[in-house]
């Protein structure tokens, strides 16, 4: 304060400087404050832009009528009942869970083992593995989906759970990999050495010492893999069939017809699943880390 006092110009200078500071500072902030409030309002609009639609959809899922109007006219659980009564949607929900479960296991295991091994390589081979691991994340989903469809079609393996899990894991594995790698970078390698030194095999050292100390990272990796699988639909659109299509794919197909109120219900359930996942993840791993590690 006493430093900024003399710098601000136009103030009535008194002997003490500190006493003079608030007046000119306050006047200057008058202009800046408007800018700051404009900035805040802008960010608020972006926030609303991102989240308001989701809120609207959740609200419409409780509508009494079949038309999607907001605010909904009358509240009911009618569409939820219809959802539960639909074997197509039940099947899709089951498919989503199977795909997400398979993806979680595959992506977490492959991502974790690779994260454990990759730092031993060093140099250009480490860079090559990192590149291979991350590359699928940057290739357009339509391209990945077509390549899997065309390739697996040669063996009549398209439209199987395997195809769906493979597609989802293409994106889930690199994310799990980088989350576990970030967790391992915070792990003291001496702890593992101490375990080996005291007679633990590498396998036991992992389960006794490494895993417990990076468990929030492992949990976050599994959670992210699960959520990625749950929400993915572009690749799934290509590689799934009537028996394996997941909730987002069925929702997509329904949308191509008309604005189906059942899609609001499904969307609400998916959003609820994500809210639970994010809340659990934030509780275990911390929101900050969830946001920056992926």
């Amino acid at each position: 304060m006493s430093e900024s006092g003399p710098r601000t110009d136009g103030g009535t200078e008194t002997g003490t400087g500190t006493g003079a500071a608030p007046a000119p500072t306050g006047r200057r902030l008058g202009g800046a404050a408007v800018g700051r409030w404009l900035f805040r309002a802008g960010v608020g609009v972006v926030f609303a832009f991102l989240l308001a639609p989701i809120a609207v959809v959740v609200a419409t899922s409780f509508a009494e009528t079949g038309s999607l109007t907001f605010p909904p006219k009358g509240l009911s659980l009618r569409w939820y009942g219809e959802f539960l009564g639909s074997s197509r949607w039940r099947r899709a929900a089951l498919n989503s869970l199977v795909a997400a479960g398979g993806t979680t296991v595959l992506a977490t295991v492959a991502g974790t083992t690779a994260a454990l091994g990759v730092s031993d390589l060093g140099g250009s081979r480490e860079a090559a593995v990192l590149g291979l691991a991350v590359l699928p994340l940057l290739v357009p989903g339509v391209v990945l989906g077509s390549s899997l469809l065309v390739f697996l079609g040669e063996f009549d393996l398209q439209q199987t759970y395997m195809a769906v899990v493979a597609a989802h894991s293409l994106w889930a594995t690199p994310l799990a990999f980088s989350v576990v790698r970030a967790a391992l970078s915070r792990f003291d390698p001496r702890l593992r050495e101490a375990a080996l030194d005291l007679g633990a095999s590498p396998f036991r050292a992992f389960f006794e010492v490494v895993a417990p100390n990076i468990r929030s990272g492992l949990f976050a990796a599994a959670l992210i893999a699960f959520v990625v699988s749950l929400q993915e639909f572009i690749m799934t659109l290509f590689v799934s069939g009537p028996d394996t299509r997941t909730v987002p794919v069925l929702a997509w197909n329904s949308l191509r017809g008309s604005l189906d109120p059942l899609v609001s219900v499904v969307s609400t359930l998916l959003v609820a699943a994500v809210v639970v996942a994010v809340a659990v993840g934030a509780a275990v791993a911390g929101l900050e880390r969830l946001a920056t590690d992926t």
């Binding site: 001496r190 101490a194 007679g199 633990a200 050292a205 100390n213």
Partner: peptide
């Protein structure tokens, strides 16, 4: 041989106690 087959024990500089 690997560290776990050697029969020696190390006290590390930062002690490396298992926090879990």
């Amino acid at each position: 041989l690997a560290p776990y087959d050697r029969g020696c024990a190390t006290v590390f500089q930062d002690w490396a106690l298992f926090p879990n």
